[in-house]
Simulated assay, not measured.
Amino acid sequence: MFSYGPKALVALLLLSFSATVTANWQQGEASVAIEGADLTDVRVQAIKNAVADASFKNGSFIAAEDVVLDGLLISSKSVITTQGQIQRVEVMSETVTDDILKVVVKVSFSPLFNCAHDGYNRSMLVAQFQVLKPQQAKYGSIFDLGKQISKRFERQLSVEHNSPKVLLIDKAFTDVNSYDKIDLQEITDKAIYMTREYGRQFVLFGFIRDISLFEQVTEELLTDDVSLRRNFTIQVYLLDAYKHNILYKETYHSEADWEYSSDYSVDTNNSLFWRSDYGRVVLNTINMAVSDVSNLLQCERSFAQVINTEQQSITINMGAENGIKKGDKFTLYKKRLPIGVNGMSHSTLRSYPAVELEVKQVDSTSSVLDMYNPNQFINIELLDLVSPTR
């Protein structure tokens, strides 16, 4: 078995496709002669060819067009998100025979989205991931793993298709011990704070639940092989801060060999760590979560906050970097927080389609909208919301 660790994520562009009804897996393979070339380049090309082979078998035709050298695909398993049907890619095997590298992949094809994307890049906040059991980080001294995980989420979300405009902050969203008992009132209170402080619609946050070590025994013919392995379990949340509700909650688990001794202090800023078995598995787990979150965002409605009001115009906190351009039309929404029978507030949004809002001026992070309201007087206030008119 041959395994190498290139710093590459193969970005695939779907050129044409035949729609499928349900997701399915398809196997593909490819062989590339090494002939003295760099093994990283050879492996990247072999993976691209194998994915193309799987796509052809699935009734699709794709072309691999880009290779992003950013440490995202550095193991035998990866997640790739595209505009089309390819959902995930797993490298099943890599073998070298007579100076020829053969790669076998398994590709997941999913149905195309049945929702209409509004064309705007969402605004997102990534809060710091926390290690729930810091004592588990003592082995290897990986106490800053949460900070590194947050950076990886921010980086990978930023290169997704229709990528959100991501801001990474050095604060956690909630208390480190409360991941299993987040209640609606807490979500509402913190969402209100987040929107006032940062003005981002979505908040990605979570916890590193388990990084414990364990021994795995593999039975051999003459002796048993004992390897030291380490868990990596994260819980990921996606919050719509404007609507005060959790859109997504999922736990991801993986494990890999831990090759460092008990007295070795790991430098998580060093690329050597991320090329290790454990580092590669951590990256691949983050890739999977990023893929799921990005797919979910495709169907979510974009909202922007009103940050300034004048007599016949308003300013919102989305601009050219979000894809807004002159002439775009928006609908006004006002937030209501009625108190329920249990004493907790529940956020609702009320639309005002009679208020016509059209973009007249755009800069990178904000836009000025002219307001036309021929039928009735509506008092637009700071922190009111607007959304693209459908």
Rank of each mutant, 00 (worst) to 15 (best):
L168T: 08
L168Q: 12
L168V: 05
I169T: 06
I169P: 00
D170W: 01
K171S: 12
K171Q: 15
K171G: 03
A172K: 14
A172R: 14
F173Q: 03
T174P: 11
V176R: 13
V176L: 10
V176N: 09
V176S: 09
N177P: 02
N177R: 13
N177S: 11
S178E: 11
Y179M: 00
Y179L: 00
D180V: 04
D180T: 15
K181Q: 13
I182M: 14
I182W: 10
D183C: 13
D183G: 13
D183E: 15
L184Q: 05
Q185H: 11
Q185K: 10
E186C: 04
I187W: 02
T188L: 10
T188C: 04
T188A: 08
T188M: 09
T188K: 09
D189V: 10
K190L: 15
K190N: 14
K190D: 04
K190I: 13
I192L: 13
I192D: 11
I192H: 02
I192W: 01
I192K: 11
Y193E: 06
M194D: 03
M194C: 04
M194T: 06
T195V: 15
T195Q: 09
R196H: 12
R196L: 07
Y198Q: 08
Y198R: 12
Y198F: 10
Y198E: 06
G199A: 13
G199N: 11
R200E: 04
R200D: 03
Q201M: 03
F202D: 01
F202G: 00
F202A: 03
F202Q: 02
F202K: 02
V203W: 01
V203T: 14
F205C: 00
F205N: 01
F205A: 01
D210W: 02
D210I: 03
D210R: 04
D210C: 03
I211F: 03
I211G: 01
S212K: 07
L213R: 05
F214L: 08
F214I: 08
F214G: 06
E215Q: 09
E215V: 09
V217Q: 05
V217S: 05
T218R: 13
T218S: 11
T218N: 10
E219I: 15
E219A: 15
E220P: 00
E220N: 12
L221Y: 15
L222H: 13
T223H: 08
T223W: 10
T223G: 04
D224S: 05
D225L: 10
D225K: 10
V226Y: 08
V226L: 05
S227W: 09
S227Y: 07
S227D: 09
L228R: 11
L228N: 07
L228Y: 03
L228S: 08
